[in-house]
Computed example of a mutant assay.
Amino acid sequence: MHWMKAFAAALALAALAPSAAAQDFPPPAKILFASEAAPSAGPPQSFGFYTKGCIAGAEALPIDGPNWQAMRLSRNRRFGHPDTIALIERLAGDAAQYDGWPGLLVGDISQPRGGPMLSGHASHQVGLDADIWLNPMPDRRLTLREREDISAVSVLKNDGTLFVDPEKFTPAHQRLIMRAASYPEVQRIFVHPGIKKAICEDWTGDRSNLAKVRPYYGHHYHFHIRLFCRDGSPGCKAQNAVDMKDDGCGEHLAWWLSDEPWAPAKPVTPPKKPEKPAPKPTRPAYTILSDLPAACTGVLEAPAPSPLPAAAVTPKIPLPPLAPWPEIGPVPQPRPAE
């Protein structure tokens, strides 16, 4: 894998601005972590914070289970702390048995060694985050190609408001989310404010874990499960605790449903040109490996398990069929000279 790191670093440097490349800045950390196709060997440990860290000894979610299917396999983001993988599998079984949910479509968890991603997330770096699509699993196994092409479906109304469509967001959705919130290892769950509002208004079951369901931007196509730092990971940085005495259905939710969170950012007046040339930057504007916990260097350099567990092998995704060439009509003949 070391040749892949070197190749990825070369590509990253070539893509940088000339001024950055000229100063020999190191490559972005996201390039290094995205180039790792397998987890590191050894016991599981999360290092750093959910948005700035990595994971050693990650485990892969099998692409298929009795009540789940992993999506977007080409991203290679099926990896997490073993407790995260166990929780997803448990939720899939419990929701099918008790909540009328046919199965989970599982989105991104983490990369094989965690770390920053090329696209899509700021978090999901320490193997303790997982996205669960709000689409129920179909009653058949999706092909590898379908898992790339099918999209998660928003549960919001199509009128530009913040509210859910009751035909799309059903009591079964609420049972699934509250089931996930009931597990003691879950620290919080991110949902769209409209989803939080619907659960606050409609949920008649045990509300003791409703505080864990937190409104946030996006999250109307999927909900996001976050686990507490796990035992055996002293280098994992915990997030601020949720106030379990406040179910979050009052002032906090009202703010998210107001105009303030959605107001466009005020335009920034460009600074006046300095009289003297600006000093050359001493570091790049992007995240580099040294910005992460020191242990993440060792995570990148560690060998992969040998042999690699079968679940950790990502199958080759067949390419979509090529569109047929357009039919070419008869070639027009030149007009005779007059």
Rank of each mutant, 00 (worst) to 15 (best):
P305C: 06
P336D: 04
T161F: 00
A8T: 11
A10P: 01
V191A: 07
H220K: 04
P264I: 02
Q333P: 01
A29K: 03
P274A: 05
A323P: 09
K197S: 11
C200Q: 11
S35Q: 04
P102L: 00
Y98P: 04
P138S: 13
L13D: 02
D247G: 02
P334R: 10
D202N: 15
L104K: 05
F228Y: 13
V191Y: 10
L87E: 10
E301R: 06
D206L: 00
A122Y: 06
L300E: 14
A263P: 08
R188P: 05
L13P: 06
H224D: 08
M1I: 06
R72C: 01
A323E: 09
R230A: 14
R188I: 12
Q45A: 15
V106Y: 00
H222S: 14
V153T: 15
P277A: 08
P193F: 10
G53D: 13
L13W: 05
G235M: 07
W325R: 14
T51Q: 14
P27Y: 10
N135Y: 10
R175A: 14
C229F: 12
L105Q: 07
A37E: 15
A152Q: 00
A152L: 02
V331S: 11
P215T: 01
V153D: 12
L319K: 15
A34T: 11
G107A: 09
A22I: 00
P321Q: 03
L134M: 08
P112E: 04
A96N: 15
P274F: 04
L210E: 03
C200V: 12
E59D: 14
P293S: 07
A22K: 02
P274R: 01
R78Q: 14
E167S: 10
K273V: 14
G103Y: 00
S74G: 01
L13Y: 03
Y217W: 14
C200N: 12
S306G: 06
E301P: 00
I88V: 13
G298E: 00
I88L: 15
K280P: 13
N76P: 10
G115E: 07
W3L: 15
K5D: 15
E167H: 13
P321S: 03
F33K: 01
A265P: 04
F228D: 12
G100S: 11
R226H: 15
G298R: 02
K212P: 04
G248D: 08
R90M: 02
N240S: 12
P277Q: 08
